[in-house]
Design a protein around this nucleic acid. Structure first.
Length: 477
RNA sequence: GGUCCCAUCGUCUAGUGGCCUAGGACGCGGCCCUCUCAAGGCUGCAACACGGGUUCAAAUCCCGUUGGGAUCACCA
């Protein structure tokens, strides 16, 4: 049987990290087995529907290279792939399930969701009186126009057992199961029902979802059983946490995929990082392309315990990805930031060259290059550096020597400039640092800069370099 | 509260009874390299939640305790 997995998000906003990780694992399970990865939109709750959310889902998946084989936009043999378009299907199966004894019609008023009781004991198990209505009576009331829902009937007793790929064998008592609503009064199914019907109809073989579904899995199995269907292989994955107590969520303003990209994280790095949040290959390898992940991934190596999302490690990994980028590609990514922060024309290629190993996130760029635009007023104390044997007095000499030497310089490459400055030091009986350090300070006005004196000179160009050196020198006099 | 799940360095994790004086990675400290800062190389600090068993031998198996999470909606 061909492996088929599905990513079934509800379009209620942006794509959060936990969601994306689930999608990744689903994608990987399918692709590791030459199977299909299906995208299904679960929009059965009209109240929570958010305009544009579906597009975000498409864009995100595409951006990280997780292409789906079937989905709302590209179709497939098991469509439609949007649940709101499948409404008649659920109704049909809901009524069939009632006939099969797996559900019943219920006319009770909607249960109030009492927040006050949430923290404390709410051991009240819903006892549905409608469960005992005869099918004829129920049908008569429906024919009469009464509002109704289809509610799951649970008559079994004893233990429900099922196997989960990551959690192993799980037993839950049937008595602890709730007779939940399957088909709402508006005719839409709940997740609990739509999910089962669709997964079966779409021939899904592996269901990957958050472990919050473990406790309701027996209910789904009951539905499969009533219909005589085979349940899928379950892969429940632990939560992605913000800290030890809280899971990552939009409500806390935690970063979404889009937020991270906006901050200058590369999609490939984000994907790589989240793959390792709860999974590891059993080797020391940490950097994985999606392609490598496909080769290596096995659901059996998924972890059981929740993982805390650590932005510091993602940042490090992002730095690795940035450094590994071909130069031209990095330059292309960096250019928009130059356009944003610089009005002066500078050697942007050299800027990129110097920056590539020095930033971990693209958004680090502006802070790194502020001095390129303008030299902020700085204290002559900046020239003091013990190790370089530099101070304001040394700087005064160094700058005037440098100005003379650089005036004559025609080859404005980093190598040539570096040679000139070194030769100058030797010529004047100074240490290299006694020339290079003051020049760099004069050129930047900053204690630390990306790149050394000669590199900054290349970035600034000859005119600006000389102008800044002269200005710095005059300030020392 | 009932039920279910989880528990190794601060974080992500390796570990499936002896190879563990517990390994790797991030972060943090130090050193080297070096035209400052990065990058790179080397190195240091740092964990088996606790208590009982089982066993010649336990981070690994069992029981309990503690701590955390999930679930108990006409949300998914």
């Amino acid at each position: 049987m061909k492996t088929r997995t599905r990513f079934a998000p509800s379009p209620t906003g942006y794509m959060h990290i936990g969601n994306l990780r689930t999608a990744l694992y689903e994608y990987l399970i399918a692709k590791a087995n030459n199977g299909d990865f299906i995208l299904r939109i679960e929009d059965t709750d009209q109240k929570r529907y958010v305009e544009g959310a579906t597009e975000i889902i498409y864009a995100t998946l595409k951006r990280v290279g997780m292409n789906w084989d079937e989905g709302p936009d590209i179709g497939g043999n098991y469509g439609p792939y949007v649940q709101s378009e499948r409404k008649p299907i659920y109704a049909e199966y809901a009524h069939k399930l009632v006939e099969l004894g797996g559900a019943h019609y219920c006319f009770c008023a909607q249960q109030e969701n009492d927040d006050a009781d949430e923290e404390n004991a709410v051991p009240t198990k819903f006892q549905d009186p409608c469960k005992h209505l005869s099918l004829e009576d129920a049908k008569a009331r429906i024919a009469n126009g009464e509002k109704y829902v289809v509610r799951q009937t649970i008559n079994k007793t004893g233990k429900s057992k099922f196997h989960d790929v990551v959690y192993g064998d799980i037993e839950i008592d049937y008595d602890d199961l709730d007779e939940g609503v399957l088909l709402k009064s508006d005719g839409f199914p709940t997740y609990n029902f739509a999910n089962v019907v669709d997964d079966h109809l779409m021939a899904i073989t592996h269901v990957v979802r958050g472990n919050e579904y473990i406790s309701s899995t027996p209910k789904y199995n009951l539905i499969y059983e009533s219909f005589g269907w085979t349940p899928p292989i379950y892969v429940h994955v632990p939560q992605v946490m913000k800290d030890a107590q809280h899971k990552l969520s939009k409500r806390n303003g935690d970063a979404s995929f889009q937020d991270l990209v906006a901050k200058g994280y590369l999609p490939e790095a984000i994907l790589n990082y989240i793959a390792l949040l709860g999974w590891n290959p059993g080797t020391d390898q940490e950097i994985f392309s999606l392609e490598e992940l496909k080769q290596t991934f096995t659901a059996e190596r998924l972890n059981k315990s929740p993982a805390i999302f650590d932005i510091a490690k993602l940042t490090w990994m992002n730095g690795c990805y940035i450094r590994a980028l071909p130069f031209a590609e990095f330059h292309k990514l960096a250019e928009p930031f130059y356009a944003k922060t610089l009005t002066r024309s500078v050697n942007e290629e050299e800027l990129s060259r110097v920056l590539q190993s020095r930033i971990e996130v693209l958004n680090d760029i502006p802070a790194q290059i502020d001095f390129v635009e303008n030299v902020l007023d700085f204290s002559p104390e900046l020239y003091n550096n013990k190790k370089m044997k530099s101070d304001a007095e040394v700087a005064k000499q160094a700058l005037s020597y440098a100005i003379e030497a650089l005036k004559k310089q025609s080859d404005w490459s980093n190598e040539a400039l570096f040679e000139t400055l070194k030769a100058l030091a030797q010529d004047k009986g100074l240490k290299n640092g006694q020339i290079l350090y003051p020049v760099r300070i004069a050129l930047s006005g900053k204690e630390t800069t990306p790149g050394g004196a000669s590199e900054i000179a290349v970035i600034l160009g000859k005119d600006e370099t000389l102008r800044r050196l002269k200005e710095a020198l005059s300030k020392l006099n």
